[in-house]
């Protein structure tokens, strides 16, 4: 499912959560939506899901989503607050809502996920632990089998083994049922191997949209003698520097051409990749990052 956002703004009174944002997602990939707290991720996803009326245009396969029954049927957004479940309802009842109201709902898959995440079917949602509530949100999102499935930090409450089970499940389900999946997370490194494309936003604005592999290749850690590192990085975009005695490590952003690579070898510098999480941190540093 293709997603197009044009001039989207979301405001809460005088607070601008999303500020004139435009981008397109070609679809059928796992997208990572990355941003710091308060960067506008939830507001953006809420507008994509028709949870709120957009100022600007949000279209799915060319059709506006807000109050459009055909488009809304194709979308499922699970926020960490479990909108598709009422706290007073039993888990089994929450699944009944999905089965009753969503044509694409796969109830047998939902039940298998409930079993995998060890969520008690007869418990009320309010009685579940934070991790179980997170898992229930993931169940709702994946079992919806929606062409556009969005998970907004919905797995953050899970413990580590459960998160790993979630990552495996997500990948297997995506392979079996390819669709457009958007995940926002702060656990970037854990999830980075699943992400095909990354959208980074900050202060309600788009910072960059890039294939994950391309983005990784744009960052390089340069380590060596402090003087040599300084000489090598002159004129490059340096994201951060660390020194220990006479050794220095610098993170640089941008592709290195052949002459640079030759020079690094001549200087005896070590060149290594940068973790996606580190790139994210530096790209979203206060005052819009270092780019």
């Amino acid at each position: 499912m293709r997603v197009d956002v044009r001039g989207l703004s979301v405001r809460y009174g005088s607070v601008v959560a999303v500020d004139d944002m435009s981008f397109s997602l070609s679809g059928n990939k796992i997208y990572g939506l990355l941003g710091r707290n308060g960067s506008g991720k939830t507001s953006l996803m809420s507008a994509l899901a028709g949870y709120r009326k957009p100022l600007g245009a949000v279209t799915l396969d060319g059709a506006p989503v807000f109050e459009n029954a055909d488009a809304m049927r194709q979308v499922c957004l699970v926020r960490h607050t479990a909108d598709a479940a009422d706290k007073g309802d039993k888990v089994s009842y929450v699944l009944e809502y999905g089965a009753a109201w969503r044509e694409t709902w796969d109830n047998s898959y939902a039940l298998s996920l409930i079993d995998l995440f060890r969520i008690p079917l007869k418990s009320k949602v309010s009685a579940l632990s934070l991790g179980q509530r997170s898992a229930l949100g993931v169940v709702i999102g994946l079992a919806s089998r929606s062409p556009l499935t969005m998970l907004d930090e919905s797995h953050l409450g899970m413990d580590t083994p459960t998160r790993y089970a979630f990552y495996d499940t997500l990948l297997n389900d995506f392979m079996a049922h390819p669709r457009t999946i958007i995940i926002s997370t702060h656990l970037i490194e854990e999830l980075s191997s699943l992400l095909e494309e990354v959208v980074i936003i900050d202060s309600g604005r788009l910072v960059l949209q890039e294939e994950a592999d391309v983005l990784r290749s744009r960052g390089t850690e340069v380590t060596g003698n402090a003087g040599d590192v300084d000489e090598f990085t002159a004129g490059l975009t340096v994201l951060s520097e660390k020194s220990l005695g006479r050794t220095k490590a610098a993170m640089v952003y941008g592709a290195l051409d052949d002459s640079r690579l030759i020079r690094a070898r001549q200087l005896g510098l070590e060149l290594g990749p940068i973790a996606l999480q580190d790139l994210f941190v530096h790209l979203t540093e206060p005052v819009g990052g270092k780019l």
Binding site: E67, A69, M72, A84, G98
Partner: peptide, 11 residues
């Protein structure tokens, strides 16, 4: 809100 979360319109 549950209806909207399951892809139904307010209308």
């Amino acid at each position: 809100p549950i209806a909207v979360a399951h892809g139904r319109t307010r209308r």
